[in-house]
Write a protein that binds this DNA or RNA. Structure first.
Lengths: 170, 170
DNA sequence: TATTGACCTCAAGTTTAGTTGAGGTTTTAT
DNA sequence: ATAAAACCTCAACTAAACTTGAGGTCAATA
């Protein structure tokens, strides 16, 4: 099944070809290059030339992004590969294991949230003090928006919530 | 158990009090107000004064955010309440049902992704053509980053993938 | 050969969700 | 009454992940 003779695959791809094949805009490829996620050789005329393996790399990047990993982290992970060499199956294995773990955590967070939501739809409490939804604190807190209780305990207990802060109170 | 006499809860809260109670920065409250997520009355001296119910509203906003709903959508949802009135239990019920649905979808997406990841760790293929990870296309695609295949079919099938675009090929 | 399409660089703009700061006013506490 | 703490507005800045545009070069084709 060798179609070989026809036009034997050029070793190098132009940025436009990579864009077409990967479904990523040229400008994004430039951007990724600037961010150190991919690299390119240049033609005499200074145009980007990519080895076909860049497609694999991009595939990995896209998958990582889908799992919610920020580009900066993806870049770190990729460049942490010994010598920043081409991706091999074993690299993929290691990376995807990590990302899977991340994904699992995110899923766990969201699932916990959903369950709380489910149980709080009934009660409609939203009590500052009692509602698990208001206390992500003890739960795994999703992407720490950096909002922590500033005052609490004594004051909070005696003053804050009668029924006033609940929805149920209405 | 009425502590009433002590200091009967002032009806209105200052922005600082709301910030302290809700764990949200004053600047963020200003910001939310600018975005139409919350509103305030003003004192003679033009300082913000909130009814205690703002705390509930903020609670709802924060929960929605945790589920990954963008502020603009939260705003829409809140202002779509008939007459933009105070949140009632029934509103909370409706909103949280919607958001729970969103959440479920996100969870489903991520779970699907994780499962694909799991199965692809073994194979390490990442084939442009065959790998489910490369074809979010038919799956629920996570937050459409707006990257669609630009060319396909004929050309893609005959030219693209020999073994070259796979990781397994290594 | 000449034109057109693909590329190049660099700067600036976009969106989301806020934060920071300057310059000035109001409240609260002493 | 006065000083300190809290508040006000408005503009500008941040970060992530890109996109758009201007001004100019390279390469494939008729």
């Amino acid at each position: 099944m060798e179609k070989s003779k026809a036009h034997l695959p050029r070793r190098e791809l132009s940025v436009g070809e990579v864009a077409a094949r990967s479904g990523i805009a040229v400008s994004t490829l430039h951007f990724y290059e600037a961010k150190g996620l991919i690299r390119s050789m240049r033609s005499r005329g200074n145009q980007r030339r990519y080895p076909r393996s860049v497609l694999r790399r991009i595939a990995v990047i896209k998958i990582a992004q889908r799992t919610g990993i920020p580009l900066a982290d993806i870049q770190k992970a990729l460049s942490a590969l010994p010598d920043d060499r081409q991706l091999m199956a074993s690299d993929w294995e290691r990376l995807s294991e990590n990302w899977k773990a991340d994904l699992n955590e995110r899923i766990a967070r969201l699932t916990a949230l959903r369950d709380q939501l489910t149980s709080c739809i009934g009660c409609g409490c939203l009590s500052m003090r009692d509602c698990p939804l208001r206390n992500p604190h003890d739960t795994l807190s999703e992407k720490g928006t950096g909002a922590y209780l500033i005052e609490h305990a004594g004051e909070e207990k005696s003053e804050a919530v009668g029924q006033a802060d609940t929805l149920a109170g209405f």
